[in-house]
Design a protein around this nucleic acid. Structure first.
Length: 596
RNA sequence: GACCCCGUAGCUCAGCUGGAUAGAGCAGCAGCCUUCUAAGCUGCCGGUCGUUGGUUCGAAUCCAACCGGGGUCGCCA
């Protein structure tokens, strides 16, 4: 990586300097470089305060001595200045030009393969309801993390677990049987997941009505909630499902089929996909045997007929793993599913669960249990925990109808992209199909970038107006810069091979240097994003890069530059920025247009 | 009640493995298109970094307490 390479030039030199100047063996890992603040001249800064005890001199003298040593002994160190305890180092133009020379010929965001296989789980919807804004944060996050890991050299397997079984879908099934009159998504022109979701709501309405009726006959609220006939019907449906009743299974297959059809459409529009789907109807039987084995080996214990795990030593609680009647809980199947995955994918080195932070405790417990069961890979499990998405009105609540539907939201941002883009009137030679593609691209960029630029761990506020904003710190702003460069490159026609030798003696402009520095840092940022599973780091840095490029574009001529070598250099710089931005956006699941 | 997360400009967020006068975007104000895409650029305005203590040469960053917001604590999923 370029950032590392520059440090690789400086660190040994610093160690040598400490040896010679202060007779001290410096630990290379302890050297901290920082960005030089823009108001001072320099590319990297070393804070010498930590070394004063070693040097036995004041901060200025220490910095001065180190600076002089570096200039004399390191080729890429051009000059330096000292401000208080800060040694600001100027790296030579030749270094930056050499960097561009190398970067220009390759994808600087393609890190070498590390031979690791990583599984990323995300989305994981229930089949009784359509996807909403919360799912979108999850889906975009999971997708982006997958892409980032891929760029960073891993082989990635993307999976989802579909919660296709349970009382929730039975409720939809009962309601459809009662009120559906044989209608289908096709006959009502509804998307399949919306159609099934509608009957889930219908169930709830009927259920509430029955509760009220029962209360009117003198039952308590609790009794009424338990005895409402429609609920009993749903519970009966679940029992029949578990008993493999052919009619119930057929209905279940049919309605879930509708839902998958709807989900597929949403995924396709959102631009995400999976390598493998797991279905809870198949995984919910897993784990029982593993728990029993753990029971035998003394990892778990029996109390009141149920099987428990004791995590009090780890600062957690006791937790049931098998009920007294021998049936599973949620944890049980998660244990089994994790084990199954490592069996199915023998080389798997990491498993990442993209799940909201309300399940922090659950995953803590899950990972401890797997560790106790003796699986070495338990250390490689990771809960990619993300914060909730709030609305300006507060939390999303399905009961209050404040849930933001995923399809509606996507449609809204695309519509806004259409309106704004049409207003700007740059699309004279686009045909209708090209326009449609562009509006999708811009709208989704706005939405995805809005959700991805925030640290995933943090709860975030979703402001609908800001999410479709196309100016400032947004996806479309980044797309715009890319399109701008493409326009430049088209106008430039075929580029001459860039000869940086011809540039010697012509100093880099500050704007050029700023862009080069940000570009230089980009691979390191990708690495960091990959290590922390945090797309926001990459999103924010790409914005910085693009902003710096726009500053360059505004004040430094490219095509109009008369000095041929400078023109070619600036075109190369532009081209390299565009390619890197495109790849960074790819890592976020955002496409960039050639024109907009 | 116990445990976990969060609290930075009017709003939304960066910065948090300690370091220079705390940065963006939006909103507001003022400029820049006969010139490579103005979805842009430049400038101004705006901050007791929740509060109080502590550690340190140095704290938005680390520690403690408190205040405020959220989450989790089921033989639910």
């Amino acid at each position: 990586m370029f950032q590392d390479r520059l440090q690789a030039l400086l660190v040994p030199a610093l160690q040598a300097a400490f040896k010679q100047l202060f007779n001290h063996e410096l630990d290379g890992r302890s050297v901290g470089f920082q960005q030089t603040r823009p108001e001072f001249e320099g590319d990297v800064t070393i804070n010498v305060f930590p070394y004063l005890k070693i040097s036995g001199k004041g901060p200025e003298q220490t910095a001065q001595a180190l600076g002089e040593y570096l200039v004399a002994n390191v080729e890429v160190v051009e000059r330096f200045n000292v401000v208080k305890g800060f040694l600001n180092i100027v790296i030579s133009d030749a270094y930056w030009l050499g960097f561009l020379k190398e970067a220009g010929s390759k994808d600087i965001l393609a890190l070498p393969s590390n031979g690791k296989k990583v599984m990323v789980e995300y989305a994981s919807p229930n089949t009784n309801k359509p996807l909403h804004l919360g799912h979108l944060r999850n889906i975009f996050l999971g997708w982006s993390v997958s892409r980032i890991l891929e760029a960073a050299g891993n082989e990635v397997i993307k999976v989802q677990v579909i919660n296709d079984r349970g009382i929730h879908i039975c409720k939809s099934m009962v309601a459809w049987q009662k009120f559906g009159n044989g209608s289908t998504p096709a006959s009502t022109d509804l998307k399949g997941d919306k159609f099934v979701g509608k009957y889930y709501v219908e169930f709830d309405k009927a259920y509430k009505k029955e509760i009220d009726a029962l209360i009117a006959t003198g039952k308590s609220k609790e009794e009424a909630e338990k005895e409402a006939p429609i609920l009993l019907e749903a519970q009966e449906m679940l029992r029949k499902w578990e008993a493999n009743d052919p009619d119930v299974r057929a209905l279940w297959e049919k309605m879930n089929g509708w839902v998958y059809d709807g989900f597929e459409k949403t995924y396709a529009r959102a631009g995400v996909s999976f390598d493998k789907n797991y279905y809870e109807s198949q995984t919910y039987v897993l784990g029982k045997g593993d728990v029993l084995k753990g029971m035998e080996s003394g990892v778990f214990y029996e109390k009141d007929g149920a099987i428990w795990v004791d995590n009090t030593k780890e600062g957690l609680d006791e937790k049931v793993l098998l009920r007294r009647d021998g049936t599973s809980v949620y944890m049980t199947q998660d244990i089994g599913t994790a084990i199954k995955r490592f069996e199915e994918f023998p080389g798997l080195s990491k498993l990442i669960y993209t799940v909201g932070n309300e399940q922090d405790y659950h995953f803590k417990v899950l990972f401890i249990i797997l560790k106790k069961l003796g699986f070495a890979w338990a250390d490689e499990l990771f809960h990619l925990s993300y914060g909730m998405v709030d609305l300006p009105s507060g939390k999303m609540k399905s009961r209050e109808g404040t849930v933001v539907d995923a399809d509606d939201l996507i449609q809204e941002v695309v519509d806004t992209a259409r309106a704004v883009t049409t207003e700007l009137g740059k699309l004279d030679d686009f045909n209708d199909e090209e326009k449609t593609v562009l509006f999708e691209m811009i709208g989704l960029a706005a939405l995805k970038y809005f959700l991805l630029k925030v640290d995933p761990k943090k709860r975030m506020l979703f402001d609908p107006a800001a999410s479709i904003d196309l100016q400032g710190h947004t996806g479309p702003f980044i797309q715009y810069t890319y399109a701008r460069v493409q326009s430049l490159l088209r106008k430039a026609g075929t580029m001459d091979v860039w000869q940086h030798e011809h540039l010697s003696g012509t100093a880099l402009q500050p704007e050029e240097r700023a862009v080069l520095k940000l570009l230089h840092q980009l691979p390191g940022v990708l690495n960091e994003a990959s290590a922390k599973l945090d797309p926001s780091a990459l999103a924010n840095h790409t914005y910085e890069l693009v902003k710096a490029y726009n500053g360059f574009y505004q004040s430094v001529p490219v095509l109009k530059e008369e000095h041929a070598a400078k023109r070619e250099f600036r075109l190369e710089l532009s081209s390299c920025v565009a390619a890197s931005v495109k790849k960074a956006m790819w890592c976020l699941g955002i496409e960039v247009p050639e024109r907009m």
